[in-house]
């Protein structure tokens, strides 16, 4: 039997340090490896099991029934497929996005989401004679946004995670995307490039991004900031 030299309490055989003050107890007469601990090592954590596959299948079934019902209504009332095509396209879009959202490979999920969104908007543009805004504005916007998301995903998935550096990269790509967006709008509206508002937005973002990169490279400063702003 050992006593804590700091607290004066007697310690049970299973205790090799005082639970009250953390003082290590050294008793050469006791082999702690042969003593059963007061509590086993196992920790129980509740992990609720949700059958996501079943839930998605159920939801997709609901979408299919919903889509088919609208098509049938359209056929019975008007005699041909008109407004129900929008409903059908929307349900198909939601179904595809949800189905591929939880793939293990997030890059593929993102690419499928991008392609299905392009296709969905293309259909709306085609049905409403809007191919010009689709080809020169929406398609490039979505393409840029997709590339932006892929780069961010790649940065987040890297092993050495440095939150401030990630944030600086995100801001940097934000700034780049804003410039490209203004170029696209200018080309669509005036057929020339005249950068104006994007500069006012980009400059402060770029400045903050540079500050973040500098901070992320300085470990001492990073530690100091962490100390002061921890939650």
């Amino acid at each position: 039997m050992s006593y804590c030299v700091n607290c004066g309490v007697k310690l049970s055989k299973s205790e090799h340090k005082c639970p009250l003050c953390g003082t290590i107890v050294v008793n050469p007469n006791i082999d702690i490896n042969n003593i059963e601990e007061a509590y086993p090592d196992r920790i129980e954590i509740h992990n609720p099991k949700i059958n996501w596959k079943y839930l998605f299948n159920l939801f997709n079934m609901f979408l299919i029934v919903f889509g088919l019902t609208t098509v049938l209504c359209d056929l019975f009332i008007i005699g041909k497929i008109t407004w129900s095509l929008y409903v059908l396209a929307s349900t198909a879009y939601v179904g595809i996005v949800l189905f591929f959202m939880f793939l293990k490979n997030k890059y593929i999920s993102l690419i499928i989401w991008l392609l299905s969104t392009e296709l969905f908007i293309f259909l709306i543009a085609y049905l409403n004679n809007g191919m010009s805004w689709f080809l020169y504005l929406v398609m490039p916007f979505l393409f840029i946004f997709g590339i932006f998301c892929l780069i961010i995903l790649w940065i987040i998935k890297r092993k050495n995670k440095n939150l401030i550096r990630i944030l600086s990269f995100v801001l940097f790509f934000c700034a780049l995307s804003i410039i490209v967006i203004e170029i696209l709008i200018d080309l669509y509206n005036f057929k020339t490039i005249d950068l104006y508002w994007s500069i006012f937005v980009t400059l402060p973002i770029l400045l903050i991004s540079i500050v973040f990169i500098v901070i992320s490279c300085n470990k001492k400063m990073l530690e100091e900031i962490k100390q002061r702003i921890f939650i």
Partner: peptide, 16 residues
């Protein structure tokens, strides 16, 4: 527990 020990009441401790 240390207050009890100071009053000469022996305490044996066990924890998880």
């Amino acid at each position: 527990f240390t207050k009890l020990v100071e009053m000469n009441i022996p305490v044996e401790i066990e924890s998880n």
